[in-house]
Write a protein that binds this DNA or RNA. Structure first.
Lengths: 155, 155
DNA sequence: CCAGCTGGGTTTCACAACACAACCCATCCG
DNA sequence: CGGATGGGTTGTGTTGTGAAACCCAGCTGG
């Protein structure tokens, strides 16, 4: 049963890409994960057009990756800020994977522009692949993608 | 030193996204990783416009993620196919991260549309975060992104 | 009490990226 | 010679993106 017999768009990779696979969504999530939670701060730090930011925040909120939380600074009116939801925090591994690859292949001679640490112990964090038999798969794993129970044949 | 004081684009996440952060590049790499190597097969399976596929293949090849390899079927003239290079294979962890998140949050009631297995032993593969102190960080890790040696302050 | 500032957006419009279909070209086969 | 492939390139409209202007509510200073 060749891989091409299965519908490309049904794949979880394709579905996840359809949600966050544009140039801004993951950067928005990165910034929110790092404490940048307000519209203006995000627009300013990312350099994204405000309408695009507005649309992305709406989309990520609707998809349940961000929560829109009211807050109130003293002497200011009530406003909203954006925080990672549970599913949003689970995208962290994806961000770490991006960062790790970029550090290995796109960093300049001075070294990586940023380092991710475990907030509890301060040690640098790495992403690894393991199979259920306990093998560590290393950086260039040999994988097979197989149809699962939710697969669909192509039209 | 707040996170916002550092340039957003210098980050390895941003750099990697600039390379593969569009709706097709990672799907092209997924298909190539699964043995779909020829232009027509890719265009047909992905449903991508041929000019877009052409441009993506050129870009991924130029960036060193794909190798353009000549081959010759019997009774046919010499042609090219695309294969993952070393750096390209290292993106596998990224694909697994996308797949895992999608399986957990976007799969239908029937279960995940695809399963990734270790090609050597056949067991399903998972992606995990570990810090250098040996802690397993679980699906919702607490992380800190800090400026590294290659960081740059913002303009 | 009115003017202005600030955070958090929405609207408008020009332009770049994309999708679709058609076309091209070299080569092999009959 | 005429067609059939694989592997693209070249149009032409449609969608997505970005810059800048505008809006609105509520505080703050005069």
């Amino acid at each position: 049963m060749p891989f091409t017999a299965y519908d490309s768009e049904t794949c979880s990779i394709a579905r996840t890409l359809a949600l966050v696979g544009d140039r801004w969504s993951l950067l928005v999530l990165r910034d929110v994960a790092n404490g940048v939670r307000r519209f203006d701060e995000l627009a300013d730090h990312l350099g994204v057009a405000r309408n695009v930011l507005s649309e992305r925040l709406r989309r990520l909120t609707a998809a349940g990756l961000l929560d829109r939380v009211p807050y109130q600074d003293e002497g200011a009116r009530a406003r909203h800020e954006y925080r990672l939801s549970g599913p949003g925090r689970e995208l962290a591994v994806l961000l770490v994977a991006f960062l790790t690859w970029g550090d290995r292949h796109l960093a300049g001679p001075q070294g990586p522009p940023a380092v991710i640490r475990h907030a509890d112990c301060g040690a640098p964090v790495h992403v690894t692949l393991r199979c259920e038999d306990g093998h560590d798969l290393g950086p260039r794993p040999r994988l097979r993608l197989e149809p699962g129970p939710g697969s669909r044949p192509r039209a």
